[in-house]
Design a protein around this nucleic acid. Structure first.
Lengths: 361, 361
DNA sequence: CTGAAAGCGCTTACAG
DNA sequence: CTGAAAGCGCTTACAG
């Protein structure tokens, strides 16, 4: 019995009533740090040191306290700790991305990292087109004293937002297509590499008339994906004419509209690369409208590997972005000093070949 | 100047250094309840009463304190309040639903309610097939002393979960197809009504051979949607033969598999109602495989009105469930005593007619 | 209607 | 390596 080891204990008999086992149906008095300290025969400060993994504790003292905490099922109160620490145990996910699949995947990845750590995930969607969205994030992190936040594209690309976080000394991690910050704050997704694969693939199939529907140019992902694609083709001696490159909005509707224009061109492109899957679905619709078939009349490649890719008919070849891993690494990075360190955020997208491409006829 | 009104103040000059405007770039000392009390010339307890909207405050006192708080930009610290209240300002969303669109919509609805209240949304996905998922939820609500949680189908249908919440005196709200609890705890979605509309619609088009692909029978939504559909048809003298009713898994793949069986039947059904959109997408794929067209050879109706419905070709007629409203009402219900009351959770789904149905030929 | 005291369950200086 | 004191910023009894 650990309790029998108790030496001279601070006499606080009235305050610390131990939850005597069997005294009542359920445990009424929640165990606190005082109770643990009393049972272990040490000061609460020592227990606190054990909780916070301070090296300034003798090994046997630490063991005794740890065992006791485990046996009793003691978990320190995050509210009390937050008050004293002036920092909560909440991790914020700040995003401005309407793609539900993307968001849920990322949440799940982050939750994978947070599970068992005592930290919780708080979601904060915002509208980066609204000038004062940064004020909203400021209130969010300040009011609840967030432990840290991770930023999803496109808000991750906004230096003003980051400056605000720095000003308030708020931990953060940024997810973006290229590095925009110190290594310890970046999850880099290398979108370019995925686009390079697509270019090589379409070229290997023998396509000469290749078109592209991009996202908004203000997005880094657009510049990286589009840039990597065109550059690779250029390196292989294929210059994509300007009229074959249209700017979409990463939406289904913009995919339809752009594809209708492209498919009316002469010569008609034999392959279209859309910088996300939503727009690829739009290309399918436009092709059907015009009586053209995928891939017989036009090959299509998307980007993201969202669920719609495998639900389309024919199923869509696309670049898979390991979104869940991105969320996992982002959260892990925020807890780096708390949890398992050394999780290297190496994200590499890959082409997934399905049924939407064939050689031109 | 409110400060000049100060009468006899508790002398705490050292502790409460007012953040003198212009003294430094940014406000270092955060204003606390003590500061407000000092400036208003009242006790901190009175300020506390104002914060908590206690009626036991003289109207002019309340006004003075409220004005002061607003002017100074004072916001009470949720951590300190949580510690004293023994309850945090976190609302949990507990779900077991793989549909990303559904989850994100619901989150957004909940956030609509929470905005400006000082409460935050914490997400907690779980696996209801895993027996000890209830233990996971227990730790979740206990450790962070959640203010309340709302339960999304299918976990909302699990009475064991609810019993656990009651045991710990945790506020909750349940979202389900029919009422399973007191009115003050239920958001009822009336899935049945949507299915009734579908039955009437297909019958009005003249279909005689109508098939259905359901979700798992253990889901309330399956029983309500399927039941409403079959009952309505029966009332109109149409008995659906057993081989026309297949149990799917609410997944794309199960939709494909079930549709392949149904479309091989003789006589072939001229219309298929799938109890969600994912499976409807599967029907499209199966039809294509067999060289059949939608809606010429087979009409299809889905349920949910997820984004895939309008991206399919032809676009899918389906039942729209106002998911965002469900989340909004659920969160509002939890804060009922805190925020605007009287938000009656009346959810009614409606058929959205698009291009996937026509009379049988 | 208002307030002084004690406490929520931890941690930060500060000593030793 | 360990501890007693004070404090984090609020609220709950308890008085008046």
């Amino acid at each position: 019995m650990p309790a029998s080891r108790t030496k001279k204990v601070t006499p606080k008999p009235i305050v610390t009533e131990a939850a005597a086992p069997g005294s009542s149906g359920k445990q009424v008095t929640k165990t606190t740090i005082n109770e643990i300290a009393r049972l272990a025969g040490v000061s609460k400060k020592t227990v606190s040191r054990v909780i916070n993994r301070s090296p300034l504790v003798r090994e046997d003292t630490r063991l005794k306290v740890e065992t006791l905490m485990r046996d009793v099922g003691y978990v320190p109160d995050p509210m009390a700790r937050a008050l004293a620490f002036r920092r909560s145990f909440l991790i914020g996910m700040v995003y401005d991305n309407p793609n539900a699949e993307y968001i849920v995947n990322m949440q799940n990845g982050a939750l994978d990292s947070l599970r068992g750590t005592g930290y919780e995930l708080v979601v904060h969607p915002c509208d980066s087109k609204n000038a004062d969205y940064i004020e909203g994030v400021r209130r969010f992190i300040l009011q609840h004293k967030l432990y840290g936040v991770f930023l999803v594209p496109r808000v991750s690309e906004d230096q003003e937002l980051v400056d605000m976080l720095v000003e308030h000394d708020c931990r953060y991690a940024r997810i973006a297509a290229i590095s925009l910050d110190a290594d310890s704050k970046m999850i880099t997704t290398n979108d370019r590499k995925g686009a390079v694969e697509v270019a090589k693939y379409l070229e290997s199939l023998g396509h000469k008339h290749i078109a592209m529907i991009t996202g908004p140019h203000r997005y880094l992902s657009t510049r990286e994906r589009g840039g990597g694609f065109l550059e690779t083709l250029a390196n292989r001696g294929m210059k994509v004419p300007a009229e074959y490159i249209l700017e979409g909005g990463y939406t289904f509707e913009s995919g339809v509209a752009c594809a209708e224009k492209l498919l009316a061109l002469n010569p008609r492109p034999t392959a279209i690369f859309t910088l996300n899957d939503e727009m690829a679905a739009g290309v399918y619709k436009a092709a059907h409208k015009l009586g053209l078939s995928v891939p017989e009349d036009v090959s299509v490649v998307g980007f993201d590997d969202s669920p719609i890719a495998s639900r389309l008919w024919p199923s869509l070849s696309t670049v898979r972005l390991p979104i869940r891993d991105m969320g996992l690494h982002a959260a892990a990075m925020l807890l780096a000093d708390v949890a398992k360190p050394g999780s290297a955020p190496v994200i590499t997208p890959h082409l997934v070949v399905r049924e939407s491409c064939q050689p031109p006829r």
